[in-house]
Design a protein around this nucleic acid. Structure first.
Lengths: 339, 339
DNA sequence: TTGTATGCGTTATCAT
DNA sequence: ATGATAACGCATACAA
């Protein structure tokens, strides 16, 4: 590993002082044109690049942002792209750490980043995370931090998220408008914020249309395909089986779909189906599945913008919460009347 | 942003010298037990953490690895997980940068990381990348670098990849064994390495079984679902249409599947289909699609191991190339005889 | 316009 | 066992 050229090298070779070189490099106003030219030429030749470490140490800022995510699935990796876009523009480098949905990993990652590697955090907590001490440590240091996607009331911090309740509302109202009468919901685990919000939207839609919710049609099950498959089987075996299902994730929608097909029922005729996330997979299967689209890329951009704002403002921003509207994408699985 | 405690603070409060504190912190042998206790206690109280920046500047190593990827799709994000696993174990922090399949982004990212932020690179080049100057710059600095997944002969560097030819061979032989006689291949763009290697495997399988390849059945099309869809339509309109298709990616397999269904043909009866990558989506669709599985996680781990070896060894490793075997996963789309 | 000196937080060398 | 000092690469206040 060859030793990179430093300001010192340039100064020595040009027989001038360090500070002059330093000034020339950042083209300060008070430096002789000829000197500047000479410095620039030599620095080019020596392939000089300023040492970011030394700079950061000196100026006490790294221009790095740590982005902590539980995984890199479709939605999150799209959000990260959005963050990246804005951050790069603003002169920040993002360091992505995936915690693999592991609480322990999340702690290790935040600790490592915290140790002077970054100027702040943009973070989406793992599903395992119930204790927030490691994140409070960030706040203790008064480091800028923005929470995104999985916003939790246990954390007082500026955040960006989508309007999950509205998403649930749109999905359910659409099913009602399509003439479905007996709509079930596969909600996620009971303790999960987004799960409950989407359920709230579902309930609100029913209420808007004077439909009484039935306990039998509200299923809390684990957030994955297999459990959704099992839950749907049960639903379809009820004497008065539902004629539509709203699942709060696309993975769950796929599980439901498998159970529906196995039962020999057809979509959208016998039964309607709407998912959440609008992952690419939903337009690949047949019939294609209606799904609530999250503006993931936009959300990422917004998170980064909010972060940068947080850096520049000095006042407390922990009350700020930006909410983006999701949008239902209607496909074959739920469309049995012309729109 | 509160100023973090430093060794200096501890020294001052304890009325001892910097060096003693430094030694105590790294529990050097030659330090009084009482002093050590006192230092540790105070450092605990002040929430002291060593400043990584200063350390890196001093020791000229950061213990960071830059991982540059063109995107974070299923395969790559799995590989990154593997890298992460091994790197963390070895005391490295990985910094993931996605270039978004953009050549320009890739250059910006490598440059930023190069500027003293990392000890080396683990890199998979973007599909746009045809010029490798930015990567040669890494090598000029004699920085450790490992190439993974998309290995190119234009880059002399240690690398890990899967045996793409063998993958093509397995897929094609399986189709032959299932009694398909007229097997087409949707290969990717002609200039792409993995595309040609998988095609080679296809050709080899035909040859092994005394089948003469036909130009009409070898389609070079762009690496995405839509083009695969169009290409398949053409294939199915031929007078002597193929009775099986091997696509070199799962996305392409999905495109092919759509065309096949549209045509009213059934899989695996009328036509067999095998994809590549074994993405989760292939087991979600119906019929489920046979696909060549890449040991992506293992590949990532291997890349990181090779990287660490490269760091420790001082000799030239640029000839090292590790190759992992893929494995065909047989599903409904190609199984018309009992195995 | 240029140079000198100091400090960022840490470790290492050399004294004591 | 402990302390003083220089050094890592850079920026900057102050002096010239």
């Amino acid at each position: 590993m060859e030793k990179p050229a430093t300001i010192k090298d340039i100064a020595r070779r040009l027989n001038i002082s360090l500070s002059t070189v330093s000034r020339a490099m950042r083209n300060a106003p008070d430096v002789n044109a000829d000197t500047k030219r000479a410095v620039l030429a030599l620095s080019e030749e020596l392939n000089y690049v300023p040492n970011k470490l030394a700079l950061s140490l000196k100026q006490k800022q790294t221009h790095n942002i740590a982005v902590i995510v539980p995984n890199l699935d479709y939605v999150l990796s799209t959000m990260v792209k959005g963050i990246d876009e804005v951050a790069l523009e603003a002169g920040y480098t993002v360091m992505v750490c995936q915690s693999n949905e592991s609480f322990g990993r999340e702690i290790v990652n935040t600790r490592r980043m915290l140790d002077s590697l970054v100027d702040g955090f943009i973070i989406s907590v793992s599903s395992e995370t119930k204790v927030f001490d490691h994140i409070k440590k960030i706040q203790d240091k008064k480091m800028p931090m923005v929470v995104f996607d999985r916003v939790t009331p246990f954390l007082k911090a500026p955040g960006v998220r989508i309007d999950n309740e509205d998403g649930g509302l749109q999905a359910t109202e659409h099913l009602i408008e399509q003439g479905y009468k007996n709509i079930a919901i596969l909600a996620g685990p009971k303790n999960l914020g987004i799960s409950n919000l989407r359920l709230d939207g579902y309930l609100k839609a029913l209420k808007n249309h004077g439909i009484k919710p039935e306990d039998d049609l509200i299923i809390n099950c684990d957030f994955n395909q297999h459990y959704a498959y099992l839950a749907t089987q049960e639903l379809l075996n009820m004497k008065k089986r539902p004629d539509a299902i709203f699942t709060i994730s696309d993975r769950m929608a796929i599980g439901a779909m498998l159970a529906i097909k196995e039962k020999g029922l057809s979509m959208p005729h016998d039964i309607g189906l709407v998912g959440f996330n609008n992952e690419p997979v939903v337009s690949l299967v047949s019939p294609s599945i209606s799904s609530v689209d999250q503006p993931a890329f936009e959300l990422g951009k917004l998170a980064a913008k909010l972060f940068i704002e947080t850096v520049h403002q000095d006042k407390d921003m922990s009350d700020v919460e930006e909410v983006l509207k999701p949008k239902l994408m209607i496909r074959e699985s739920s469309l049995r009347r012309p729109l």
